[in-house]
Amino acid sequence: MLEGKVKWFNSEKGFGFIEVEGQDDVFVHFSAIQGEGFKTLEEGQAVSFEIVEGNRGPQAANVTKEA
């Protein structure tokens, strides 16, 4: 699992990017966010995740919000 911070997330469109120190930003789709209820992320929020190869390159999977 990697750790990063949410760079930005558009809850209307359901996607955004996660910043990872020393690496390129990683695309995140709302469907990759773990948990119940409305799936969104806040700018600057700490998250842990895995990287998988998507249709358009690397993207986040199994995203969990850090306490």
Rank of each mutant, 00 (worst) to 15 (best):
F9D: 00
V47G: 00
E19P: 02
A32K: 10
Q45C: 05
E66I: 11
E66L: 09
T40P: 03
N10A: 09
R56S: 11
G35V: 08
E36F: 06
S31Q: 13
G16K: 00
I33S: 02
T40L: 10
S31C: 04
G44K: 10
K5R: 14
F38R: 08
D25K: 04
F27K: 02
N55T: 11
N62H: 08
V47M: 02
V28K: 00
V63L: 07
N62C: 05
F27H: 03
A46D: 11
E19G: 06
N10T: 08
Q23D: 09
T40D: 13
E21M: 14
V28Y: 03
V28G: 01
K39C: 04
V28I: 14
P58D: 06
G54T: 14
G4N: 01
V63E: 01
F17W: 11
V63H: 00
L41P: 02
K39M: 07
P58Q: 15
F9K: 02
A61F: 11
E50P: 01
G37W: 05
E42M: 10
F9V: 04
V6D: 00
V47Q: 00
K65T: 12
S31L: 12
G4F: 02
E36W: 09
I51P: 03
R56E: 10
A46Q: 14
E12A: 13
G14V: 01
K13H: 07
V52G: 14
S48I: 07
A60Q: 00
E19F: 15
S48P: 00
F27Q: 02
I33R: 01
G22D: 09
T64P: 02
F30N: 05
L41C: 04
G57F: 07
V26R: 03
R56V: 09
A32C: 04
Q59F: 13
F30G: 03
E42V: 14
A67V: 12
S31M: 14
G37V: 06
M1I: 08
G54D: 13
F9M: 03
Q34V: 11
G57S: 08
V6K: 00
D24T: 13
G54K: 09
S48Y: 13
S11R: 12
N55G: 15
F30T: 04
I51H: 04
S48T: 08
I18M: 03
A60H: 01
V20A: 10
G4D: 00
